[in-house]
Design a protein around this nucleic acid. Sequence first.
DNA 1: GAATGAATGAGTAGAACTACTCATTTTTTT
DNA 2: AAAAAAATGAGTAGTTCTACTCATTCATTC
Lengths: 217, 217
Amino acid sequence: MDKKKKIIIADDHPLFLYGVKQIVEESGKFEISGEFNSGEDVFEFIANTKPDFAILDVRMPECSGLEIVEKISDAGLATKAILLTMYKNLNYFYKAVSLGVKGYILKDTATQELLSALEKISYGGVFISEGLQKQLKNRKIDSHKQEIVLLSINSLTASERNILRLLAEWKSTKEIAEELFISERTVSNHRNHICEKLNLKGANRLVRFAIENKELF
Amino acid sequence: MDKKKKIIIADDHPLFLYGVKQIVEESGKFEISGEFNSGEDVFEFIANTKPDFAILDVRMPECSGLEIVEKISDAGLATKAILLTMYKNLNYFYKAVSLGVKGYILKDTATQELLSALEKISYGGVFISEGLQKQLKNRKIDSHKQEIVLLSINSLTASERNILRLLAEWKSTKEIAEELFISERTVSNHRNHICEKLNLKGANRLVRFAIENKELF
DNA sequence: GAATGAATGAGTAGAACTACTCATTTTTTT
DNA sequence: AAAAAAATGAGTAGTTCTACTCATTCATTC
């Protein structure tokens, strides 16, 4: 048998972390070399210890799983990232794929799926949660649109991202203007630009997008 | 030593369920007599098997933890409910307290906390997550207001709850009107009544409330 | 049977957001 | 240095939601 592969886990829910740890260790094929309760310091640890796998929660305090994956990718590290998420948000998924994530698992369909994923990825494969695959099939028509959305997010400027961030906190145009010391008109214009770029139309669509895609910008 | 106490667990995230199960069983003092991946059938199982504890996720498909607790309370069962939640939403907490919940634990501060809770509750106590206690202290001034909000939710009528439910799905007044075959004005009036009852003021406040308190109505 | 509450609908005024177009200044890129 | 992109601001029209007041019908309660 091969040497045990090293895995680090990061999730802000301790009980969840515990569950992942148990399942991974029980299999006898892997070794947990690091555990984290937030996204903080995770990338530094990966860069220093170069584990084989990194199992990351998408939504975490300090630094989201997606951000960590981005850093791993930028640094050209060999650590294979597996994302765990609660949400069937396809935008997160496309973002993850574009960052070279090897596994994407939904928390509500994941126990033995996790081991299958590790197995498959060990041999150079890619693993996607069954629940998400269904989602992908159902929305075959929309998938192209959603990829465009993702590309569009990359085209957002710093100010636009900033405003999206504040919108995700339910702040109004007026509140954002006051917070950033700029005119309401400027904020309003930025909002419109974002809507154009993301092709969002109708009442509250932008606020909704901001709230449902917090981790994406 | 006493006989092992029976516990049932319900959570729609299998890995989480697994973590809870491991921790509870490791202690040697408790026995898992039932596991559920959704809120469905949970109450029936509790009514039939009368376990000592029920560890329930607040947000679950089919039937939320809060609903299950309500049924336990209505049926006058002795099963002690412990709620697990991801969200520091105090409204959920107040609702839980009003339903006679014995433990309220945040998922992001819970591992050994869970055993302490079971221990404490066994001896007739009540357990509240440390993270939430802080929250309660910080908002001491607001706490009265929030309790009023909770009371007010009980005063909502069936139609009003229905509209809140649709608002939580980001539906607009027009969409709700079409879906319920009533006039936009009627929906608008209901919205205003709800705002009055819940003392919500300003742009998007109602939509925000609906989205952040889905499980409450 | 009168009173109350609930569901339904409308009128009006104002606030906030959407959806356009346009202009000026600054920064970045080439 | 010239061109392009970004940040800032404004004009105007239309939509949606907020915040009131009011009326009618129906069911429940007392």
